[in-house]
């Protein structure tokens, strides 16, 4: 569902897909995203908003999660094709990039317990632990003598 610029999946956490297509070994996690408008999203087909949200493909019976994003223009009556990209994972042994476009369908309707979902999402976001850049650890604790370089030694976006 949409609350302002926030997209809130009614079902979060691990979704067992039950997909038995040949070679498919993934379950699914969909996370909250955002919606916005861009000038280029108005054309002959009408005026659209743009949605983007994170998702994760979860290996069955294996310790790996593949993280990606999904984006698509939509309005009250229609949706375009959806573009997706998977660019990171939480394991060393099963790394790959995936991207593409898929046909999408859209059925605008009311969401049961919408207010409860909105409130739950707002509470979850509001109660998150405060975040700072790692560099602030040394400035917040100057007497600790921290060597911050040691935390990221050998770490790259790929490894």
């Amino acid at each position: 569902m949409q609350n302002g610029s926030h997209l809130i999946p009614a079902v979060q956490g691990l979704t067992i897909t039950g997909d038995t297509q040949s070679g498919s070994t993934y379950d699914l996690i969909v996370g909250p995203g955002r919606a916005w408008s861009e000038n280029g999203d108005t054309g002959a087909a009408g005026t659209f908003s743009r949605a983007s949200l994170p998702f994760a493909l979860v290996d069955r019976n294996q310790n790996c999660v593949h993280n990606g994003g999904l984006s698509f223009p939509y309005n009250a009556a229609a949706v375009s094709i959806a573009a997706y990209q998977v660019t990171a994972e939480a394991c060393a042994l099963h790394q790959f990039d995936v991207w593409g476009q898929l046909a999408a369908t859209y059925d605008a309707h009311g969401v049961p317990d919408a207010v409860a979902l909105e409130n739950a999402h707002a509470a979850e976001v509001g109660n998150r632990m405060p975040t700072k850049p790692l560099s602030a650890l040394a400035t917040d604790h100057p007497a600790a003598g921290l060597d911050l370089a040691a935390f990221g030694s050998g770490i790259t976006p790929r490894r």
Partner: peptide, 24 residues
């Protein structure tokens, strides 16, 4: 009680992928 995130100049810059920071 503070989450110090590497590469995190803002809340959304701390998750690296092979093609830049993850949007979420």
């Amino acid at each position: 009680g503070v989450n110090y995130v590497a590469g995190g100049t803002s809340a959304n810059k701390g998750c690296q992928t092979r093609y830049g920071a993850h949007a979420f």
